[in-house]
């Protein structure tokens, strides 16, 4: 058991190292130089050269890599080339925003998808089913970006019910925090809701055809009990699997919402850093995101092993 855990931890670290190295060299392989971009057209070449020297960017890649690795193992992610801020600070400020957005989008998606998916399955081919299917495809087709702007115009400009942009930390009060997140969560959550609704519907339909469901009905259980107590639980297994990659999907969706609603989350931080060729931020952010994935996979693997000793990966 301990060997198993140890092996999984080592593999996780190897994956992290691989990600770090890949990102490091990939960013330097693409055209575009951060210092030149940062100084812009006006800068005189001497100043550009000096800044590169100050930042150690004039040294050979391998030297830069070794230095960076050295700092990395001490927990130092370096500083942004553009604004000289510590990457850890930038990420620490951005992460709560993205997590809050992802969580709420998830809640919105589930709140919409589960009921509609269940009703669609139970009342297959009814008017309700067709209507929900239609709206599901609509939700999938409408770009999050456009939905976001429309929501702003309707709810912020016209009705003045909610703020048009921005983020307030929880410390400023629960309602300010929530009210700023409602519109972006709806914008992001609706497309995921569509996927989830369709998945729920088809999973439930599958399960409803199973023998044990027929048995339950034959036993004389009310239809509602059949569905809720027997069918749904099994139907939810594939759905939960999809929810597992929800984090990835929502992170992608969050980038769009973060842009439209001017929320400085991890998504925006990363995209802007890539555009600016701000190597330390890109490296640090991708490492943190990869770390979250790797760590949660590791946790799940270990939990599986603990719960069911028969589960082992072929190592």
């Amino acid at each position: 058991m301990q060997a198993y855990i140890a092996r999984r931890i080592i593999y996780s670290l190897l994956v992290m190292w691989g990600v770090a190295t890949l990102v490091f060299f990939m960013m330097r392989a693409i055209p575009g130089d951060p210092v030149q971009a940062f100084v812009g057209f006006e800068g005189d070449p001497a100043a550009v050269a000096q800044i590169r020297r100050n930042l150690g960017l004039d040294q050979p890649f391998i030297v830069q890599y070794v230095k960076w690795m050295g700092r990395l193992v001490q927990g130092d992610l370096g500083a942004s080339i553009w604004n000289r801020q510590a990457v850890t600070v930038l990420i620490r400020e951005a992460l709560p925003r993205t997590l809050a957005l992802a969580l709420l989008s998830f809640a919105v998606a589930v709140a919409i998808a589960l009921p509609t998916g269940i009703v669609s399955a139970i009342r297959k081919y009814s008017l309700a089913d067709h209507a929900f299917t239609f709206f599901a495809f609509l939700g999938l087709s409408m770009p999050d970006f456009w939905v976001g702007i429309v929501l702003i115009i309707v709810f912020a400009v016209r009705l003045q019910w909610l703020p048009a942009f921005g983020y307030e930390p929880l410390g400023m009060g629960f309602w300010p925090w929530l009210s700023h997140l409602i519109l972006p969560s709806v914008a992001t959550g609706t497309s995921f809701a569509a996927i989830l609704a369709r998945m729920t519907r088809s999973a439930l339909l599958e399960v409803l055809r199973e023998d044990y469901v027929r048995t339950a009905r034959a036993k004389g259980l009310r239809e509602l009990a059949v569905i809720l107590r027997h069918a749904l639980r099994n139907a939810l297994i594939p759905v939960i699997t999809v929810m597992g990659i929800a984090f990835a999907l929502l992170l992608a969706g969050a980038v769009v919402a973060e842009n439209v609603f001017a929320i400085k989350g991890v998504g925006r931080l990363l995209i802007e850093a890539i555009i600016n060729r701000d190597f330390p931020i890109v490296q640090g952010t991708i490492l943190v995101i990869a770390g979250i994935f790797v760590f949660s996979n590791l946790t799940v693997d270990i939990l599986y092993a603990l719960i069911n000793p028969r589960i082992r990966y072929v190592d």
Partner: peptide, 8 residues
Amino acid sequence: DFPVQVQR
């Protein structure tokens, strides 16, 4: 992107 434009 802007950095590429500056370079080119």
